[in-house]
Design a protein around this nucleic acid. Structure first.
Lengths: 126, 126
DNA sequence: TATGGTTGTTAGTCGTATCTAACATTTATA
DNA sequence: TATAAATGTTAGATACGACTAACAACCATA
């Protein structure tokens, strides 16, 4: 139980779930499917894996709910996403879309320290 | 044939192969295995996949040779690795090891533009 | 040159992540 | 409320990338 490491892929699903619940109060698998550009079947798989690791509560045909653990994780990922996007926009002068694209790729792999220093650097040079 | 996209994993193998050939004139599977921390069997698998995509020439029990295509790709990856390591060391003040670790993770996912701008930025601020 | 140690390969397994096609359930509406 | 459309699930396939265990080939040396 209680895995501490989440693959890039699952982090993306979790991020999407969190954002949709924040915005609309709920999420549907088909929304995740469309936003992430994957099949409905892949979403079902991912929901199983996330539920198994207790990042969400989920039952067959049931409502998708995010747990406390899931919320914390999602916020972490989103925090990284925002800071990284900001870095690529303001420091490296990329347009928002490409900045976000790079953030999305890097947020899953950058180390804690590197992110911390990048965050400080960005704050000091804005 | 002739795949243009190479997975992170295979890029690591190719980088390792190139570096060893540069340094010693040849590579052995067991060296790759030790440097990348994977089993000898995984190396054999990777060699098959790299050969299939024509980044290396390779035959059962034979010498591992890197092709022109492989050399170009390896140089690209290594260029990214060096610049990124430099960025994390000089701009974000990480020690060499952690800088290199982050470079290794990010070199496979950063976009062309983002890398170009990061390279220029690093050059201007050293 | 026979033999043992080193290195390389194969076969089989596992987990992740994706897909399509077929089927099940839910929801909306005629 | 019956039916159709939308949504969700399952089963089965594929690919990647890793592993162990067993076997094959190579090479050094006694």
């Amino acid at each position: 139980m209680a895995e501490t490491v989440l693959s890039s892929g699952l982090e993306d699903y979790l991020e999407c779930i969190f954002n949709n619940i924040e915005k609309n109060g709920s999420v549907k698998a088909i929304e995740i499917s469309k936003e992430l550009g994957v099949s409905r079947a892949s979403v079902t798989d991912a929901l199983h894996r996330l539920a198994e690791k207790q990042y969400i509560n989920y039952e067959r045909y049931g409502k998708i709910e995010i747990t406390k653990k899931g919320t914390e994780k999602a916020k972490e990922v989103i925090d990284k996403h925002v800071i990284l996007t900001n870095f690529f926009e303001t420091i490296l002068n990329l347009n928002h879309e490409e900045a976000s694209e790079n953030a999305c790729r890097i947020e899953h792999v950058i180390t804690k320290n590197a992110f911390k220093n990048l965050k400080e650097f960005t704050q000091q040079h804005k």
